[in-house]
Simulated scan of single mutants.
Amino acid sequence: MSVTTLGIKLDEQTRARLKAASEKLDRSPHWFMRKAILELIDKVEAGAEIEDVVGFELLEKDSLRYSIAMRRRLDSAF
C-alpha cells in the first residue's frame, strides 16, 4: 500500500485544540486527524449527505466557502 503525506492548514487556535484533545486521549495529533477523517469517510460511504455533515443552518456559508461546484460556477461567471 502506497502512503502519501497530505497537508492541512489549521489556525493556531485549532492547532492548540487539536493538541489538547489528542493529549487528553494519549494519542498523537496525527492519530486524531486520521481517525476523524476515516470516520467521516465511513459516514459518507454509508449514505450521509452534506447536510448531515455540516448541518443545514451552516450549509449556505459552508458551500460558499468550500463547494467545488459553486466555486467553478462563480469562476466561470467572470
Rank of each mutant, 00 (worst) to 15 (best):
E23R: 12
Q13K: 14
H30I: 01
F32W: 14
R27K: 14
R15E: 12
L18K: 04
M33P: 00
L10M: 15
M33K: 12
A20M: 07
T5K: 14
L10I: 06
K19V: 06
M33S: 09
R34G: 02
R34S: 13
F32N: 06
R17A: 14
H30Q: 12
L25E: 15
A16S: 14
R34P: 01
K19E: 13
L25Y: 06
R34I: 08
S28M: 07
S28E: 10
L18V: 06
A20S: 10
R15K: 15
A21T: 06
L6N: 12
L25H: 10
A16P: 00
R34H: 11
I37M: 12
K9W: 02
T5D: 07
K35Q: 11
P29D: 11
Q13A: 14
S22I: 01
G7N: 12
M33F: 09
H30L: 05
A21H: 05
L38K: 15
I37R: 13
A16C: 05
M33Y: 05
F32K: 14
A20P: 00
M33H: 06
A20N: 10
R27H: 04
W31G: 02
Q13R: 14
I37K: 13
E23P: 00
F32P: 01
L25D: 13
I8D: 02
L38E: 15
I37Y: 11
K9C: 02
L38D: 15
L6I: 10
K24I: 00
L18P: 02
R34M: 11
A16I: 02
A20W: 00
L18H: 04
R17V: 08
R17D: 12
L6A: 11
R27L: 09
K24T: 07
T5G: 05
E23W: 00
S22D: 02
W31A: 09
W31R: 10
M33N: 08
A36P: 00
K9Y: 05
F32Q: 15
H30C: 03
T5Q: 12
D11F: 03
R34V: 11
A21M: 07
R15I: 03
L25K: 15
I8Y: 04
L38C: 09
L38I: 13
K19H: 07
A16R: 14
I37A: 15
T4I: 10
K24Q: 10
A20V: 03
R17Q: 14
D11H: 08
L18E: 07
M33R: 14
